[in-house]
Amino acid sequence: MVEGKDRATLDHILTSCNGDKRALIAIMQKIQHEYRYLPRQALEYVAKKLGVSPAKIYSVATFYENFSLRPKGRYIVRVCDGTACHVRKSASILKTIREGLGLDKDKTTTDDMLFTVETVSCLGACGLSPVISINEQIFAEMTPEKALACLNKIREKEAGNYGKKREKIHL
């Protein structure tokens, strides 16, 4: 059961959408924005409040690639694997990043919850290919080495201010 602060957060999200079950996806997006993933208890709470079956919400959550039921890292690294990036060897970037972080296709988040690595079909920045995005920021004309350097930089910075609000990454 959801209690205390989480309950207030969820109630706020629900009220902002008028508790309308047609706004389910918007509600789920807001929850994901808040927690960086969709916590099971939150979905169950929402199901009850909206009068939608938990199975239906689970169905929506698993249909869209963008929703995650597993906690994600503080930095979400998306490696673009669209056509333009693909032909300019995005695959080797992905491979290097995964190897560097000890991740694979099924294990996408590092144990320290710092990084989550995903692929994405196109970031719409084909002219800058190959690109990766870290949280909302786009990094252009990547190579495996440059990508790893980015991640290391983040890691160094995080080591210094553990627990603080994350900042923009300056490279």
Binding site: E44, A47, A55, Y58, S59, T62, F63
Partner: peptide
């Protein structure tokens, strides 16, 4: 309900 999509789709509980 359904879970997932495409070839990975299946009927599942919540």
């Amino acid at each position: 309900d359904f879970k997932g999509r495409g070839s990975g789709m299946m009927v599942s509980t919540a």
